[in-house]
Design a binder for these strands. Structure first.
Lengths: 240, 240
DNA sequence: CGCGTGTTTGACCACTGTCAAAGCTGGTGG
DNA sequence: CCACCAGCTTTGACAGTGGTCAAACACGCG
């Protein structure tokens, strides 16, 4: 984890996301500015937290994606949740907390220390909303794994990612960059990579999506969302 | 939801659970005592929160079980998580929060208003630990659904319930009362009730468990836990 | 006794997993 | 500029877990 050049608050995807959660006043933006002036970089596969280890600090994800994993003794692996730009990492209000899972960087990642929420009521609220959304995403993942078939899981997962990235200004027109390999996506969806590959093939055939290299395009995001009954997680009156 | 006779703090399963999370001083116990002096009852199938509706208050579950559900448009249903005595319900630090799922009583349930955490540092800590455990349970559920087969899901689920009930003094010797029908259990495990029934049959045959009426007995809880690689969720240095 | 709710079973089949090998592709070094 | 390599994607053949539909069977309760 090394220091890199400062990130501009105004242009940051993280700022955009937090601002979409709740209005950020100048106090909040100043606090963010200050935090973002000392970003750190984590290389792909670098670990931010490890299962069972103390959670040493709270971070704001500025660039890149992270994933939370559970590993089974026999090598099986489950990707529990994703961290996208603007998401909070390790933000738990409990002294001496230990991580219940491992969090790793899926590509080169930039983070900064999370500003003290006490420094601004707006930040307090933004962080609370972000936490509530995290929980909503876990619940969505449970429903996906418990009651969706392979095709539904794939579409629902991509629709969720698309919606989340859009809030950070990182997706448009159904299109976004996807650092997950098919193998990792399969770990997220509770499938084998072979079966996921066949599911993607079928989704391409029926025209639901395009997926070349790292670029995914949902042909019709609204129709896809309707197909899986997806509605963007709304955790409070004014959050996007 | 009507008022019923007060619950004795000292004898309460909820108190026992919270005390196992962190030491409760007399201030904390007094606050609990006060809250428990005005319990409310919710009948089976009564709903505490509904998906999309505002979360109107925070409760402490004193007796009975609750479940959090997600319902799909076509009638499919996923049981997301369980609330057992001593668990917190609707405890989110966000004004105007909306529920991302429906919470219902699985049997006759007694709750009381959650004491203000600000009234006692010990309660603040106990509640924070409880929240962290809730998250750990969601993560466990994701792993169960994503990477376990039917037999593993069943054992893992029962082992988790057994461990949680034991902390509240409601289970001993691998044995506990289970208000979930096989159909509801199947909804929790992402299976059909028919397949779950066959899985239970097999688990009985190999001697893993007994399940008559509402009474479940794990023949060898430790061996069962080892089989699924279960370790009780530890979210901080001193929590059970 | 009859009914409703919950459990159990049978027959059949679809979805998803397994194993193994063959294509790609982007990056590296010669 | 090309050859090579590692990592990732794609495909085939086959096996097995878990789903579907339908019916019979228990059990508690009024």
């Amino acid at each position: 984890m090394r220091t890199v050049e400062p990130v501009d608050v105004a242009l940051s995807a993280a700022t955009r996301r937090l601002q979409n959660l709740t209005h950020l006043d100048s106090t909040a933006l100043d606090a963010l500015q200050h935090a973002m002036s000392r970003p750190r970089r984590i290389e792909r596969h670098g670990q931010l937290f490890r299962e069972g280890r103390p959670i040493d600090g709270a971070w704001l994800l500025l660039q890149g994606w992270t994933a939370r994993f559970r590993h089974l003794a026999d090598g099986r692996r489950q990707l529990v949740s994703l961290g996208l730009p603007g998401d909070l990492l390790g933000y738990c209000q409990l002294e001496g907390a230990r991580s219940s899972s491992t969090v790793a960087a899926l590509n080169a990642v930039t983070i900064c220390e999370l500003p003290d929420p006490a420094s601004s009521p707006a930040l307090t609220r933004a962080f609370a909303i972000s936490r509530a959304l995290d929980e909503a995403h876990l619940i969505a993942q449970i429903t996906r794994l418990g009651r969706f078939n392979a095709h539904e899981r794939l579409i629902d997962f991509l629709v969720e990612i698309y919606g989340r990235l859009k809030m950070a200004g990182l997706a448009h027109g159904g299109q976004f960059l996807m650092p997950l390999t098919q193998e990792l996506t399969a770990d997220a969806l509770g499938l084998t990579s072979v079966h996921l590959n066949r599911t993607i093939k079928e989704a391409r055939r029926v025209g639901d999506l395009t997926w070349v290299g790292r670029e995914v395009t949902l042909r019709d995001p609204q129709a896809a969302a309707a197909f899986v009954g997806y509605s963007p997680a709304r955790v409070c009156a004014n959050s996007g």
